[in-house]
């Protein structure tokens, strides 16, 4: 496979982004909202792909790291009055700091132990908001990024603006990650995942590489969290539940866990399943019980079927410019 240069990759991603952003002018607010949701999920899932698909570590706690990013962004914007694009940077950084600390512990744990520890984090961290007054308790804190720039015209809706912001963020994240994964760091992580012992014997500092992967992955999760806070307009413990963490892992697995381009597919699937199942439930006259729970049943069955039949991830038609390099 021929290597695309970073500049070519960026150009292709920007083209796709431009098509999406122009296209968003032709859909209603709900679709814009769902588009923004999918872009945020794609970013968050790519953080799991980086962690699990490349460095071989698992995390059920990325919802909590998203919460760290979201709360950091909101607190900065509210108390320091910085412009919100910088709040996203703060969210990214805060996620990274939390991830670095967690990563130091995580590098010493494997498989199920790491899963259980991060699970405890996913449950414990968001509930801390009730303990400290500054975090706003169960109601959370509002995050108001204001109206879209006036230069875009008065009929440019709020959700379309969110969509534009999240798509730009997603493009940046994918471009940076894609480039990062084709450097020696990416190769080290792949070696680590394939066989930690052999990687160590080849002179790779296993602990260091794992902590680095965890930190970067958490940066991306922190960014996704602050974007999520923007989309919801608030941060609250209920926004970053255990279910969110599970959803991200599900998305990564459905997408083929070591396929970066797959995170986009995974994100779209996650957003599409509730939509499709609602349509189906409405069509067949399902009750509230069905509407609320059918998406969960479908996602879980898909998840189990994926690990059972294609444990290394489904063979999606690869988006060539995002595909991983041949090993």
């Amino acid at each position: 496979m021929k290597h695309k240069s970073p500049a070519v990759r960026l150009l292709l991603l920007v083209l796709i982004g431009a098509v999406l952003i122009i296209g968003s002018g032709y859909v209603d607010q709900l679709r814009s909202y769902q588009g923004a949701q999918a872009a945020i999920f794609a970013i968050a899932i790519s953080s799991i792909v980086l962690l699990t698909g490349y460095s071989g570590q698992i995390s059920l706690g990325h919802g909590a790291l998203m919460a760290v990013g979201g709360y950091a962004a909101v607190l900065c914007q509210t108390h320091l009055h910085i412009p919100y694009p910088f709040a996203f940077l703060v969210g990214t950084f805060a996620g990274g700091v939390a991830g670095f600390l967690l990563g130091i512990a995580a590098a010493r744990l494997r498989g199920p132990y790491l899963a259980g520890t991060t699970l405890a984090l996913a449950v414990g961290l968001p509930s801390l908001a009730n303990q400290f007054h500054i975090l706003g308790g169960e109601q959370g804190l509002l995050f108001d990024v204001g109206n879209p720039p006036a230069s875009l015209g008065s009929d440019f809706t709020q959700y379309r603006w969110f969509f534009v912001v999240t798509v730009i963020a997603a493009i940046l994240v994918f471009w940076l990650l894609r480039n990062l994964l084709s450097t020696r760091y990416g190769r080290r992580w792949r070696a680590l995942r394939a066989n930690p012992t052999a990687a160590a014997l080849s002179g790779i500092k296993v602990g260091k590489a794992k902590v680095l992967a965890f930190t970067l992955s958490s940066c991306v999760a922190g960014l996704a969290g602050s974007l999520f806070a923007m989309l919801l307009g608030l941060v609250a413990p209920l926004a970053f539940t255990l279910t969110l963490s599970f959803t991200l892992v599900t998305g990564a697995v459905l997408a083929g866990v070591s396929n970066l381009g797959g995170s986009i597919v995974g994100a779209v699937v996650l957003v599409a399943i509730p939509e499709l199942s609602n349509t189906a439930a409405a069509h067949f006259g399902g009750s509230d019980k069905v509407t609320a729970n059918l998406p969960g049943v479908i996602t879980s069955v898909l998840l189990i079927a994926t690990v059972l039949f294609v444990p290394n991830g489904p063979k999606l038609p690869r988006m060539k410019f995002l595909a991983r390099t041949r090993q």
Binding site: T52, G56, I58, L60, R110, G111, P112, A115, R193, A194, N195, F246, V249, T250, V253, V257, K289, V290, A292, N293, L294, P295, G296, V297, T299, S300, V301, L303, I304, V307, L308, P311, N312
Partner: peptide
């Protein structure tokens, strides 16, 4: 013997957890 040996069971049991929760909600 594959790289996913230790991760796949975690994912599968999570899938079962989610599936049973949703199924219970459905019923």
């Amino acid at each position: 013997g594959t790289p996913v040996e230790s991760i796949a069971p975690v994912i599968a049991t999570l899938g079962v957890l989610g599936g049973i929760r949703s199924l219970a909600g459905l019923i």
